[in-house]
Design a protein around this nucleic acid. Sequence first.
RNA 1: GUGGCCGUAGCUCAGCUGGUCAGAGCGCCAGGUUGUGGCCCUGGAGGUCGGGGGUUCAAGUCCCCUCGGUCACCCCA
Length: 448
Amino acid sequence: MTITPSTPAGTLELLPAEQAIHDAMLDKIRRGFRRFGFPAIETPVFERADVLLTKTGGETERQVYFVQSAGSLEAGEAPDLALRFDLTVPLARYVAEHEHELVFPFRRSQIQRVYRGERPQRGRYREFYQCDIDVIDRDELSLRHDAEVAAAAIAILEDLGIGSVTLRINNRRLMRRLLEEVGIESEDAQTEVLREVDKIEKKGVDAVGRTLVDSGLSPESVGKLLEFTSVSASGVAAIESALSTLPARAESEAAEVAEVARTMAALGVDEDSFALDLAIARGLDYYTGTVYETRLDDHPELGSICSGGRYDDLAGQYTTTRLPGVGISIGFTRLFWQLREAGLLPEGSPAVPVSVALMSDDDLEYSLGVAARLRAAGIDTETQMTPSRLGKQLKAADRRGCVLVVIAGESERQRSTVSVRDLTRGEQVEVPLSDLVDHVTRRLSQEP
RNA sequence: GUGGCCGUAGCUCAGCUGGUCAGAGCGCCAGGUUGUGGCCCUGGAGGUCGGGGGUUCAAGUCCCCUCGGUCACCCCA
């Protein structure tokens, strides 16, 4: 009796060749975060359920996986643990818990998997990586950090070798002023409208306009609103000029957006890489100020791959200290999946570049010695442990993605040499053992 | 969580209105080549046609249920 092997729906697992690319990309993100001064932390995969669910309404709770020991399950007890569904709530707990040991403004990066009990869909997972950076301060947090996290995200995404990106910026408070301008005063009503505005790109302006009118807004209000949301501009000068056309009641919020844009330019971000877009709203209501959304210029159809924003009070449920923060998150699993789907994964280096063949048991010591030399030089090397036909070994190494096969059989042993076969070129040379490391190093550093 | 579509070998699929319909290509394994992969040739393994029930002389093929996948919505990375 065998059980059909399959991963649970909504999980992604990879074969070694793709895993190598996946991990190399994650490493780039990790290094990029550090380069911008965001040291890494990790938090537990599961948290106490009461900690995790404080802030959330029913919507989030629906998506949470609860964790329970077999014992308490049998006893019919309610689970008191749950898997984290993002990295922001654990961050809030972390900051509140360690408030007196942290240095503010507190900066951290975090690359870990999160879990959501959603119905899986194309490119949507129930287990996925988030790559977050955030800055948290006490009482007040400089607007300059809004620019900083965005600048870091842009630089890192461009470093991934997936083409240029555009990060679009908006400000939720600015949008609220504009909604007031068209007569939508209550905060709840504003939230509803913003949620709808967020769908403009997906459903089209007309459809969103109709929905808004159907929901009871006057056609005039909707018309004015959609005029505002059509505002977009790239580059500091264009952004400033677009902002200057907005109503006076939004003046101070507009000035904030302009400052973020100027600071990004000062941070060295290419002005083509970010844009103002008043149609970006972001569903999450915990964002209160700046919001971001990012897409690939060459493949906008892949959707938002990186987003975030500012929240006025991150950890209000855990501490009385006011802790404003700003952060941005790369949805890495989705990004990776979409790149793979589109055939845009960057070229990966082999999981293990060198394989040492074994011709016969008599050569075992010699072959393993060759492998040891390579490893001592820091070269990732696998060894064949069972002798077999050389053709089979070459084929196996090729399928594993190895670039070089080192053959150290009887004839090489007698001459104190090895044969190094380059699988991508089909070339083979015999080199003295003493030249092995140099030769292999040179081969591996060459372009294919 | 709500609704639509789909479910045949590891993968992509064919299988006409129920009656040699259990197949193809690719992949995999072995051999041709006892020290040379990718090409070619030969052979082989692999499927209770998602599962259960029903209609029928006969069911991948029709009906019901169920599970799984997928898409849309909700929401979001």
